[in-house]
Amino acid sequence: MKIKKIKEILNAELLTDDINTDVEIQAVNCADLMSDVLAFQNKGGLLITGLINIQVLRTAAITDIVAIVFVRGKIPDKAVIDEAKSKNILLLCTKLPMYEACGLLYKEGLKGISE
């Protein structure tokens, strides 16, 4: 599923406007624990998380996640957004709580990371 479509479904805001949103997301991982992110092959994946610190970004970069959705309207600092741009990781922000964000994407056919 294209990022554009994900943005639409989640009624999300794009925080990294200069990165190409024409990428295809293969699967989704949802976690607030960084070790849970690292436990999977996330290549080409999307991470849905409630954490907005710089470590989320570094963890995502380590495991080749291409986009992150922050839930419940949380927005990271500018430093995090700038680093995301330099690492070419897309950041999105939705007002939806985590369960609903995951449920909506799943309903539209986006698969989980272990499927």
Binding site: N53, I54, R58, A61, I62, T63
Partner: peptide
Amino acid sequence: FTNAGEASLKIKNYLKEVGIAENILKRVAI
């Protein structure tokens, strides 16, 4: 925390640049 993780990202990028297979460089990175 300003730099935490950057060393591992450098290691990962180096292995990527020299053409090490994805599944191997990912294990090193983790």
